[in-house]
Simulated scan of single mutants.
Amino acid sequence: MSNHPIPIVDFTPFLDKSAKQQAADQLLGSFKSAGFVYLTNFGIPEGEVQDMFDWLKRFFALPHETKMLAPHPDSGSHHRGYSYPCQEKEIQYSDSGDEFTIAPPSMKESFECGSEDNDFMPNIWLPEGVLPGFNEACLSFFWKCHEVEQNILRALALGFGLEEEWFLKYHETANSQLRLHHYPSIFSELLETNKLTRISAHTDFDTLTFLFQGEIGGLEVEDPNEPGNYVPVPPIPNSIVLNAGDFLRRWSNDTIRSTMHRVVAPPGVAAKDGLLPSRYSMPYFCAPDMSTIIDAIPGTWSADQPKKHEPVSVKEYAMKRFAANY
């Protein structure tokens, strides 16, 4: 990736069915080489994305006491509601799930929501009337992201030579999550001395993540060809940054990369009086049904290329990772 930036894939040929297999092959190829891809023409108009950013900024502009009316539970196993700055920390587990590293606290605040039909992890909203229209905007955008998720999963299945609905049967319950992020203005010295982070280096443990970046950058990904070297992923207008998670890597028998990434001080942005500007982003985490057992998919293993991982329960693995982050 040092000589080749993260690929840009136009999703139009898949959505309009003019060259579905070609777009699917490009998407899968990017995941195999880099674990990341910029996806353009993904199915949500630019204006609707901007509307959601407007709601995000209105929410985070509320007083702390107001945002705490929808508090994220102290236990990370219920990943909904508002998390205040430094409440969450990043945990990076080994494949076995027995070893992990803990990073400094993340200097960000978040709001998380999902499907209203998710009885396992119900939403935690502000009381009615506090920010009229916010709940409805979040839910509407969540379902738009869900539709994008389903199309991406269809494309990945085609890329693997499977029938289009193969991954969808493991994502029937809309177990995914929309997160709204605000990285408050912070003294650059705190990041430079590693006393705080914006988000430390980690992999996602879902199937895949797509990120709507604001105008301020800061996302970096590890170069697969140079471990420990991170390269910037600057915002590209009208695109999402799409990355594979640990579950998809395991499903693919490690033919897909789940790449380490982090959020740092944005390159080329000068601190004013030592303060870095605020940053906003919206990641959407595509998660399998809790009942799913992740095992290598057909065509990714053989007698000559055996399975690299034991089957793993989504519920057990996800709950362990969720709980450790709080």
Rank of each mutant, 00 (worst) to 15 (best):
E90W: 00
I91G: 00
I91Q: 02
Q92Y: 02
Y93H: 08
Y93T: 00
Y93C: 00
S94P: 00
D95M: 05
D95V: 09
D95T: 11
S96F: 07
S96V: 06
G97P: 02
G97T: 06
E99G: 04
F100M: 04
A103Y: 12
P104C: 07
P104Q: 14
P105Y: 12
S106K: 00
M107K: 06
M107G: 00
E109A: 04
E109W: 01
S110H: 01
S110P: 03
E112Y: 12
E112H: 10
G114N: 09
G114D: 10
G114S: 14
G114F: 01
S115K: 07
S115D: 08
E116V: 03
D117S: 14
D117W: 04
D119S: 11
F120R: 15
P122Y: 02
I124A: 02
W125T: 01
W125V: 02
L126R: 12
E128A: 15
G129K: 11
G129Q: 10
V130A: 03
V130E: 03
L131P: 12
L131A: 03
P132I: 05
P132H: 06
G133A: 09
F134N: 04
N135R: 15
E136Y: 06
E136R: 14
E136Q: 15
A137E: 09
C138A: 10
C138Q: 13
C138V: 06
L139E: 15
L139H: 13
F142T: 04
F142P: 00
F142S: 05
F142G: 02
W143T: 05
W143I: 00
K144G: 00
C145D: 06
H146Y: 12
H146C: 04
H146S: 14
E147V: 00
E147S: 12
V148A: 10
V148H: 14
Q150R: 15
N151Y: 07
N151L: 01
I152W: 02
I152Q: 05
R154C: 03
L156Q: 07
L156K: 06
A157L: 03
L158H: 05
G159F: 02
F160H: 06
F160D: 03
F160Y: 09
G161T: 08
G161C: 05
L162R: 13
E163Q: 14
E164R: 10
E164D: 13
E165Y: 04
W166H: 14
F167K: 10
L168V: 08
L168C: 07
L168K: 04
L168R: 04
K169P: 00
H171T: 07
A174G: 05
A174D: 14
N175F: 11
S176R: 13
S176M: 08
Q177W: 01
Q177K: 14
Q177T: 15
Q177N: 12
L178H: 03
R179F: 10
L180C: 13
L180K: 09
H181P: 04
H182K: 13
